[in-house]
Structures are given as structure tokens and as C-alpha cells.
């Protein structure tokens, strides 16, 4: 195991144990090891002895903020939908947070999904998480039975091969282009903060697609989503997706058909992405959760880029700033609005 991860794991356990023992939190949300290489399992520690199961490495790709509302709710005393909240402080939850996860918690607080007082955020500066699909591509998609992580490389083993891979080569695209690896809100800190990163081409991948012509872009979009099986792993892995009834489940009117159809799949992806506009922090959980390797993060990242360009807004950085689609300015750009007498472009 890498010494960096070992250090962080030890510290996480220490902090979690303290919080649980002192009864500051009723549960601690972290990661434990999965049964398959390169897949970590989100884990809720409820007793001090559980903390020994907590682990930290470069495969903690899902966003723990996603679990917060449900875990918090599960700790409240049972009551019927319209009953008032019980008096006195409610049990709290401790949670690990990297830059993007903490930004999602900011969004959740703004949208009244969680209460700041009920979460104890243990901040960790992210070194970038590893994309398991990239690792698989490095070994020609042979089966991987073991991955040993060292500080700057991965040792990947399978039947009949061992390969050393430079860690940074297989870090997720969203982490590579991330400029906010440090938590934005936190109560405890593990390790040192990096103080921010500089990235030369933050939206390089989006720019590449924008530079294509319109028919190429359509082809790219169609191809990207063609393997979608509509399992909704992307939606469910997303901390922004908490609607009691998702638009795909609406039946009157039915916006999106339920089976695999190229239009319905396209509509699902367009609307899912658009629902994240101005809220998505580019944490990459959707892409990491997808079993079919669809890069749906490119859709939300385009919206991220436009929000920055048009409204100068980045989600989750400040708790007192309204989300871009819940506010407006009188001088917002409107060059897309059709003016009388203006001619369309010949495409």
C-alpha cells in the first residue's frame, strides 16, 4: 500500500473513532474495500469498532455526498410524513470530503437537502482518483485480479502478467482538469491542503468537441450513448439527483420512453445533464459508476463551462451565493434571442 494512503487511512480511522466514541456523530461515512480490484465500497461506520474497516486509496471514485441525505434521515426518529420534527438536536453524521464532494455538500445545503449543523465534514485534499476503465485499457482489457497501489504507480496483476503503470497516466479526466482539489467547507482536516492547482487546458476536452462541425457532434453524441442500458447508475450515483419522482418515471405526461430507443436514451441524457446545470461540480461519479463506459461527464462539463462563461459561476465554492439558474441579472447575455429582421446562419 502506498504510504500516503496508509497515512490517510490511519488518520481517518483515528478521527472517525474519536467522533463515534465521543458520540459527536451517530455514523461515519467513508469507504471500505470491495471484493473486486479497483472498486471501493462506500461504508457507514456505526460503532467505534467499525472504523477498522475504513480504507482510503485512489479508487474512492463515488461521491459520498450522495449518501448523506439518506443516512441523515435514517438516524432521525421514525415519524409520519406530516409529523413535525422532534425537538432537540438530531443525530449527526461524520463524512469524508474531497474538494468536489464538499462542493456538492455546499449545493445540498443551499438546496435544503442537508443541514450544515448535522454534518461533520472531514476534509481531505484529493490527489486525483484513478479511472479503472483507463487501467483496464492499459492491459488490453485482460482480467485484472490484483492492483497494488504505491505512491506514484500502480502494480497491476492478472493471470500471466504483471504491469507497472504510472498513477497519473490513469487518473480520471475530471481529476486531471480539476482546479479545486481542496475541500471548501470542513470541520476537521486530514493531511495538508494543496492550495489549489493550475491546469493549462481546463476545458480542453469540451473545446475539442465544440470544434467539430454539427453533424460530427451529433454522430459523437449518438455513438457515446449508443451502449446505454438505462440502468440509471449515473443518475443514482449523482448527489444532485434527489427528486422524489425523477422525470423518467413521470407517466403523465411521459417525457421519456422507458425502453431502449435511441431518441428516448438521448432525451434521458440531455435532460439528466441539464438538471445538473449550474450545480454539477464535475466530481465524475456518474462516469465512474457507468457499467458501459459512457462518458456522460462531457455533457455536464459543457454546461459547467457555459455557466462560467455566461454567468461567471462555479458551483459549490461559496455557501452564500445563489445557484445560477435560481437568479438573474438584468444585463445577462441574450445574443441567442432572435431579433426581428435578423437572418439565420447558413449551416
Amino acid at each position: 500500500m502506498s504510504t500516503i494512503n496508509e497515512k490517510i487511512t490511519t488518520e481517518i480511522r483515528k478521527v472517525a473513532k474519536e467522533l463515534l466514541e465521543k458520540d459527536e456523530v451517530a455514523a461515519f461515512l467513508g469507504y471500505t474495500e470491495g471484493t473486486v480490484p479497483m472498486v471501493m465500497k462506500p461504508f457507514v461506520a456505526r460503532r467505534p469498532e467499525d472504523v477498522e474497516k475504513l480504507f482510503w486509496n485512489s479508487f474512492c471514485v463515488l461521491n459520498l455526498a450522495n449518501y448523506l441525505p439518506l443516512v441523515l434521515q435514517s438516524l432521525e426518529p421514525p415519524r409520519r410524513p406530516n409529523d413535525p420534527l422532534p425537538e432537540g438536536p438530531l443525530p449527526r453524521v461524520g463524512v469524508l470530503a474531497t474538494g468536489c464532494w464538499s462542493r456538492n455538500m455546499v449545493v445540498q445545503i443551499k438546496e435544503n437537502q442537508i443541514e450544515r449543523e448535522r454534518v461533520i465534514i472531514v476534509g481531505i485534499s484529493s490527489r486525483g482518483m484513478v479511472d479503472r476503465k483507463k487501467v483496464q485499457a492499459q492491459v488490453d482489457h485482460l482480467e485484472i485480479t490484483e492492483v497494488i497501489e504505491e505512491d506514484h504507480k500502480l502494480i497491476v496483476k492478472g493471470p500471466g502478467f504483471t504491469k507497472e503503470i504510472n498513477r497519473w497516466d490513469v487518473v480520471r479526466d475530471n481529476c486531471k482538469s480539476c482546479v479545486h482539489p481542496d475541500p471548501v467547507i470542513y470541520d476537521e482536516v486530514i493531511g495538508d491542503f494543496s492550495g489549489g492547482r493550475q491546469v493549462p487546458k481546463r476545458f480542453g476536452d469540451i473545446q475539442e468537441i465544440e470544434d467539430m462541425d454539427i453533424e460530427e457532434r451529433w454522430k459523437w453524441f449518438q455513438e457515446e450513448i449508443s451502449s446505454c442500458i438505462r440502468c440509471y447508475a449515473c443518475r443514482n450515483a449523482c448527489p444532485l439527483c434527489y427528486c422524489p419522482t425523477c422525470f423518467v418515471d413521470d407517466s403523465r405526461p411521459q417525457w421519456v420512453g422507458k425502453s431502449i430507443d435511441k431518441t428516448d436514451t438521448a432525451l434521458f441524457h440531455i435532460l439528466r445533464a441539464f438538471h445538473c446545470a449550474g450545480r454539477c461540480t464535475d466530481c465524475g461519479a456518474c462516469e465512474s459508476a457507468c457499467p458501459m463506459g459512457i462518458r456522460m461527464r462531457l455533457f455536464t462539463k459543457k454546461l459547467y463551462k457555459d455557466c462560467m462563461e455566461l454567468y461567471g459561476f462555479e458551483p459549490g465554492l461559496r455557501i452564500d451565493e445563489p445557484l445560477p439558474l435560481t437568479t438573474f441579472k438584468l444585463e445577462d447575455p441574450q445574443d441567442y434571442i432572435l431579433q426581428q429582421g435578423q437572418k439565420g446562419e447558413e449551416k
Partner: peptide, 26 residues
């Protein structure tokens, strides 16, 4: 005003995935 922000993003997004800009007008 809210609509203006929403459609600015939406129109750009549709163009991004390859829907002709002139299909959807505001």
C-alpha cells in the same frame, strides 16, 4: 429573466450535442 438564463444554457447545450441551432428559437 429566469427563462433567459435557462434557455441560453439549453440552446448552447443542444448545439453541443449536434442539434441545428435554428431548430430551437427564442
Amino acid at each position: 429573466f429566469y427563462a433567459r438564463r435557462r434557455f441560453a444554457l439549453f440552446k448552447r447545450f443542444l448545439e453541443f450535442i449536434g442539434i441545428e441551432p435554428d431548430r430551437v428559437n427564442f
